[in-house]
Write a protein that binds this DNA or RNA. Sequence first.
DNA 1: TTGAAAGCGCTAACAG
DNA 2: CTGTTAGCGCTTTCAA
Lengths: 336, 336
Amino acid sequence: MENVKRPTIRDVAAAAGVSQTTVSDALSGKGRLSDETRKKVHDAATKLDYQPDAIARGMRGQGLGLVGISIALENEANPSAVWYWISIASHASEAILNAGFALVQLPHNATLLTKLRVPLDGVIVVDPLENDEVIRHFRRKKIELVTIGRDIKRPQGPWLDDDYEGGMTDLLDQTVVPGERISVVTFGLHKSYIADALRGLDSWASASGSPVQQLHCDQLDDHVVDAVLHKTMAWHAQVIVAQNGRIATRLLQRLKALGIRVPEMVRLVSVADSPELQFLSPAITAMQPHPAELGAMATKVLFDRLNGIGTEERKLLPMDIFIRSSAPLCRVPVPD
Amino acid sequence: MENVKRPTIRDVAAAAGVSQTTVSDALSGKGRLSDETRKKVHDAATKLDYQPDAIARGMRGQGLGLVGISIALENEANPSAVWYWISIASHASEAILNAGFALVQLPHNATLLTKLRVPLDGVIVVDPLENDEVIRHFRRKKIELVTIGRDIKRPQGPWLDDDYEGGMTDLLDQTVVPGERISVVTFGLHKSYIADALRGLDSWASASGSPVQQLHCDQLDDHVVDAVLHKTMAWHAQVIVAQNGRIATRLLQRLKALGIRVPEMVRLVSVADSPELQFLSPAITAMQPHPAELGAMATKVLFDRLNGIGTEERKLLPMDIFIRSSAPLCRVPVPD
DNA sequence: TTGAAAGCGCTAACAG
DNA sequence: CTGTTAGCGCTTTCAA
């Protein structure tokens, strides 16, 4: 609530001895004024500390300069997911502010979104679910939308992501010998990154003759995790691929508790890296996502679209592989 | 950018056969209309799917319904800080949305804030620094402000926090025998929570005759951390108090690497808990902050102030103590 | 190269 | 109880 009575365009016009139109044009850089007039206006504006009122400006159809961001975070205490989210949001935020826009934090919940009164110029949705209700909400309102990851049931519109499919084949190339037995432990299947990673894994495994066992963990308590691990061991898995850092961390804890040594008895790999994985012992091999870059790129794509510049609809970032001791390098990749 | 041409108040007025004012009053619930008229207007509005334009409404001085939130996060990869921040933000966000407001994510950086064009109705600043520039920025603009934690150099305005001072004396009561030697390891001293915790520690120590060694760590690499630990050992510390979860985690790693067993050879305590501390081995004893509650309360205080309801300026939440194996219970507290 | 006037969608003030 | 009028601060015609 700006309690101070701010100067209006009229005050500046009076001070500079010109019309409101002239002030408006001078300050928004329209090329129809003499340099002299322009300077006169700028001086007056500076002296009065004039800042155009964004609301009034918005009424003229410019929009307010608000970009929303929404992420499907199922659990606030999941450090991997939270790190990912914060990295995206903080980098998007900086780009957005530099454009004079503001970042509105949105819940991933269509009912709550209904209560939102302010008009958004655009929205970034991170890690959408299947038939994502937030995406549907904004599409219905015809608000410009960019997603990081995609709705696997409705993969429309512009989206960006790390290349989990390609990353997975690279990762397996470097850490698994063809023919070795691979267990995959998933937790949720509704996000696109896991579908992509599984696709990469399946194609690598069928090309190289590795059997794959897919296991699903619906909870992360000791009991459930131990049951999953028993299955992998009974199946004689040599490598366990965990869906994300959170699961990898839990699996490692329970492997240790059960006396199963990593990497000697079984190797462990995480699809998505997050900072804590390097501090575990053994540190966990993983593919690195690029939340900071994705946040900045999503903002750029969004702004381009708001400005009517059609940009490529999809972009995949190649992933880096961090080989750590939970699954050491086992083959040097051969250049073709 | 809402590309659809939305119905205006005029359309509703025409459809209902009344004046614009009547529509405005009917929809904003002013008590001067007959129920019959009111219903007629509501029906017309529903049929047209009319939503009042927030921007135009804002022009009449209602404000836009935007609350900003800014946190001083020195490192995105610090899981404890990030967990704290996310918990506050997500709970504040929900309360804010339910009030029809939106949460704007702000950087902790006055220069970037200068570029912000949209007018905020209020701001929540989390963990301000000394002479916090963000606080000064918003105070200068006369924007309603609530802080979680306080600027220790300028502790003005309404603020909320966990009671680190009281929590610390409770923690020491339960885990330290009077007379034992306590090392405190700090990392930054500019935030109020650490000042409060140190005050609690000092008063407890002087009341119970425990010597205190205060050590400062300006970086968290192995070399610096090891040097600090050598000092604590040379001083024969029996308990190490770490400023937060991040530092506690690093200290524990290095203690293990140096072959110093916890809690047998030295006990370790963290001022602020975060989820990962319970998964370390040994799990680390700590005081639990209440970010979710603080986020919700800050929102409430802010709204009360926006509505002109003066509320208590300060509030401290009592902290819970989580006794874990890094510093087990050593005395049962005696009820007086 | 500049200015005057119209009006964005809404609500507050003032009439009836 | 309801309607008419004025204007929030700005940008956009349109005219000079």
